[in-house]
């Protein structure tokens, strides 16, 4: 498999329709290495659809997504550089946390899957629960395992859909630290969130979305809540 790496991700006039419904409409933006880009907006604004297109799960109806010099045709080599935390957690409840992590590490071609799973469990603070089935975990614990699953292959592009869901204060703090570490390591992080308080001070760039369109783009944003109220309402 050819190795793929890229310095930036860009979307140019990207739209996605489902039948007559336009989920994403003519979005253009760019995210570079070492950046955390936030997608902010109400339900149905097009955040998850946009993330699915960036993850190569959905094809845009029109427009272009590029990963450095590579397009969506980068295939398996491109997917090897992308990590996705979905709204659904992509975990098998019957398997233990360790088995889930080792399974996905294996699929990403990591030779020492067990070692990588052990390190991931430590980062998630779940070393002692690693051999318990995921079905027995709380939502917050599952979320932490799911995040480590998404990042187990050190992706260049991390796409996170509502990563703070179900996390208590301590876990949210740990996640914020993890995201900042990712930024420092040169990853491109794109996250969709409703939690403006947690996103405050974290984002390098915020896109405010409404009804499938970018209605505001703010670099090094501050006062997210007031900006959100003024461009989205309520």
């Amino acid at each position: 498999m050819t190795s793929v790496d890229f310095e930036e991700v860009s979307a140019e006039d990207v739209s996605r329709h489902f039948g007559r419904r336009r989920a994403v409409s003519r979005m253009t933006f760019r995210a570079t290495r070492g950046m955390i880009l936030g997608l902010l907006g109400p339900n149905g604004a097009g955040k998850s659809t946009l993330l699915a297109m960036l993850a190569t799960l959905l094809r845009p109806s029109s427009g272009t997504i590029r990963y450095g010099t590579f397009g969506l045709s980068g295939g398996a080599a491109l997917r090897a550089r992308i990590g996705v935390l979905g709204h659904d957690l992509f975990l098998y409840p019957e398997l233990t946390a360790r088995e889930n992590l080792a399974f996905f590490a294996g699929l990403y071609g990591i030779a020492d899957g067990d070692g990588r799973a052990r390190a991931a469990l430590e980062r998630a603070g779940l070393e002692t629960r690693g051999d318990d089935p995921v079905a027995s975990f709380s939502r917050g614990m599952r979320q932490r395992v799911a995040l480590e699953r998404a990042l187990i292959h050190d992706p260049r592009l991390a796409l996170l859909d509502e990563p703070f869901t179900g996390l208590d204060d301590a876990s949210s703090g740990a996640l914020l630290r993890r995201l900042r570490t990712l930024r420092e390591s040169g990853a491109i992080v794109i996250l969709a969130t409703h939690d403006l308080d947690l996103a405050e001070g974290l984002l390098d760039h915020a896109l405010f979305l409404r009804e499938g369109r970018i209605v505001e783009s703010v670099v090094t944003p501050g006062g997210l809540r007031s900006t959100y109220r003024s461009v989205i309402g309520r």
Partner: peptide
Amino acid sequence: RQSETLRALMLVPAP
């Protein structure tokens, strides 16, 4: 489908 794990399988770099 229940945990959308099929999507996760579609995301891995295996053919």
